[in-house]
């Protein structure tokens, strides 16, 4: 899916938990997420803290979208 969006000419960032799978499906901009059942959250944390984690991930995603890449790139902290 991510590949088809890219193919259509839209810059896309894949926020996902298992980076190797994302690499396999052909994503070019990858931001590693928290966990499979809650990629952008952590239910063990208090709500405000969880939301901060989510915001941080989305910020990273937006940053990835603004970064030129020539090959598959994983955006870690």
């Amino acid at each position: 899916m991510v590949k088809e969006i890219e193919r259509a000419g839209l810059p896309v960032v894949h926020v996902c938990t298992i980076v190797p799978i994302s690499l396999t499906v052909g994503a070019n901009r990858i931001v590693p997420a928290i966990a499979i059942p809650h990629p952008l959250g952590d239910p063990t944390k208090p709500f405000e803290e969880e939301k901060a984690i989510r915001r941080h991930l989305v910020e990273k995603a937006l940053k990835a979208l603004q970064t030129p890449v020539t090959e598959q790139t994983v955006f870690n902290d």
Partner: peptide, 8 residues
Amino acid sequence: NDYSRVDE
């Protein structure tokens, strides 16, 4: 509770 360590 380290969810990030999913065994691939």
